[in-house]
């Protein structure tokens, strides 16, 4: 029961979705299955929210390290949830968009979520710079090729790159840095990315087959193997 039912579900759903591509009358069934999938995805959001509350309530109850910050998480979660579910301050009635201009939900999104989310990633600019200094070494031929390609792209994507080679005559335009950058992207980069893509594509296809045929069972947990 614990293993068989999930296996049957995976095989059934996977098979129907593949067949529905080839047999048009089954297209509607495939659509319905994906619609079910979309609805279950929302329950996954609820699960994520529920788990977050559980973890932080436990942290609070046991007064673990940094427990006062769990209050911040719970308050932030509660206020945002209330603002969204009850559409507090929404200019229209219940039918209006939850993100409508003027609503508390939108206000928190723009003034709390946006600055926090974007600054979190903006920090990476500093770490990329630091990593460039520490780890980007021309130790051998391969690393040097990587370094040269990176330099051309970095320079070629700015006006400085164009300025550096502006003196070149038309007949040598093949060597202008912006041109080289465009060519690297659309030729060697494309070739390398395509080789990777074909490899990943084959990997996804074989893994999908393994799942649908019931060979791959690791997602069922320890007793599912």
């Amino acid at each position: 029961m614990r293993r068989e039912v999930p296996l049957i579900i995976t095989i059934l759903v996977g098979t129907v979705l593949i067949i529905s591509v080839f047999i048009p009358p089954l297209e509607s069934l495939g659509e319905s299955f994906t619609l079910f999938f979309d609805i279950i995805a929302v329950f996954a959001f609820f699960l994520g929210g529920g788990n977050l509350v559980r973890v932080h309530v436990l942290k609070l109850a046991k007064k673990k390290r940094d427990w006062p910050f769990s209050i911040v998480t719970l308050v932030g979660f509660g206020v945002m949830l209330a603002a969204g579910l009850f559409k507090i301050g929404n200019p229209g009635d219940i039918a209006a968009s939850v993100t409508a201009e003027g609503s508390l939900f939108n206000m928190i999104y723009r003034n709390v979520f946006v600055p926090l989310g974007s600054t979190m990633y903006a920090l990476l600019a500093f770490f990329v710079a630091s990593a460039s200094y520490r780890a980007f070494r021309a130790k051998n031929r391969e690393a040097t090729i990587l370094l040269v390609a990176a330099f051309i792209i970095l320079l070629g994507s700015t006006p400085f790159g164009a300025w550096l080679t502006i003196w070149m005559p038309e007949s040598m335009s093949i060597l202008e840095i912006p041109n080289l950058a465009v060519w690297i992207m659309s030729s060697p980069n494309m070739a390398g990315q395509r080789a990777i893509m074909i490899g990943i594509g084959l990997g996804v296809v074989s893994m999908s087959l393994r799942l649908i045929l019931g060979i791959e069972r690791s997602y069922l947990g320890e007793d599912g193997a």
């Binding site: 296996l7 995976t10 759903v13 994906t34 999938f37 999908s208």
Partner: peptide, 9 residues
């Protein structure tokens, strides 16, 4: 299992 099956399919 439903999610995995859908994604694989």
């Amino acid at each position: 299992a439903f999610i995995v099956g859908t994604t694989a399919g």
